[in-house]
């Protein structure tokens, strides 16, 4: 039934284009709020997934724009890749929907006119006073609290890895698309110089491989592309370490016996290249951790 109504709505959106975007949120209630806020009759249809935090926007390019839809969603209280919700809108969300928000890095202000209350202002925005000016210091790697510009890239990578562990091609594709979007959304100006250099080197391949996984519906193909993707990810995380330890693992049987690596947040081995068949095959070869 849901499918039918979806198709019915769909049919009325002409000149349609489809785009994947990232929208913060927690639960099923978030999903309905986000979709209701974003949908517009005959103009826009939003389909948000609470697991990937990714939404598919389908809209009539002659009637609306991506940012018009995302602005409505932000005004409903949900931060997304283009807009941050007004604090008042976020505060009005039901408790279960109050997802963890991104923290802003306060600017250094010089007082010029009067004694400015900006610090006070930042407090209102939830900026903890202990926030450090250097941006590359990693924040805890729990799914939400990320001041690291690459945090969402890593998160989506781990989600993709987990999907491959479960041999779920559909889920893997979905996370990989989200990873692709996250890769494209990274602001290079926010990266440290060292990370930036590596990023420039690996970014293109990462984007290509994540797109290929996203388009593939065969889990074996996805695993093929996951090998170089993991290699690039390893280079990246070496220079841009997360606060929590990350484990670089290796399975000698993968890749037709040539062996292959992957990254995991757990030391316990769960092999993404074989899934159930040889779940625990492999070992941790390196622990990547901040000093």
């Amino acid at each position: 039934m849901a499918l039918i109504s979806f198709t019915a709505c769909n049919a009325q959106i002409k000149n349609a284009t489809t785009e994947a975007v990232i929208i913060a949120g927690n639960c099923g209630m978030c999903e309905s709020t986000i979709e209701k806020a974003g949908n517009a009759k005959n103009a826009a249809l939003v389909d948000w997934d609470k697991d990937t935090k990714q939404a598919t926007l389908k809209y009539d390019v002659t009637k609306t724009k991506r940012d018009e839809i995302l602005k409505r969603i932000a005004l409903a209280g949900y931060d997304n890749q283009s807009f941050l919700a007004p604090d008042e809108a976020y505060a009005k969300l039901p408790a279960c929907c109050q997802y963890d928000r991104l923290k802003k890095t306060p600017a250094k202000m010089e007082d010029t006119i009067t004694s400015e209350p900006h610090e006070h202002n930042m407090m209102e925005h939830g900026h903890a006073t202990e926030m450090k000016a250097e941006k590359m210091v990693e924040k805890p790697s729990s799914a939400s609290q990320k001041s690291d510009p690459l945090a969402s890239v890593f998160e989506q990578y781990f989600a993709l890895k987990d999907a491959l562990v479960g041999s779920d091609a559909k889920m893997a594709a979905s996370h990989s698309k989200a990873l692709n979007t996250a890769i494209n959304a990274v602001k290079m100006s926010e990266l440290s110089q060292e990370t930036h250099m590596v990023w420039m080197k690996v970014m293109k391949d990462m984007a290509a491989n994540s797109a290929l996984i996203g388009d593939a519906n065969d889990v074996e193909k996805q695993r093929q592309y996951f090998i170089p993707l993991s290699q690039n990810m390893y280079e990246l995380i070496k220079v841009n370490k997360m606060k929590a330890p990350v484990y670089y693992q290796f399975c000698p049987m993968a890749n037709d016996g040539k062996g292959a690596n992957w990254l995991s947040k757990e030391n316990e081995v769960k092999n993404p290249y074989y899934g159930d068949m040889m779940l625990n095959c492999g070992k941790t070869v390196e622990t990547i951790q901040q000093q």
Binding site: K104, T105, P106, A107, M109, E116, H118, E190
Partner: peptide, 10 residues
């Protein structure tokens, strides 16, 4: 009126 930009990348 005078306004300021209180945070990075925003």
């Amino acid at each position: 009126i005078i306004v300021s930009i209180p945070a990075e990348n925003t």
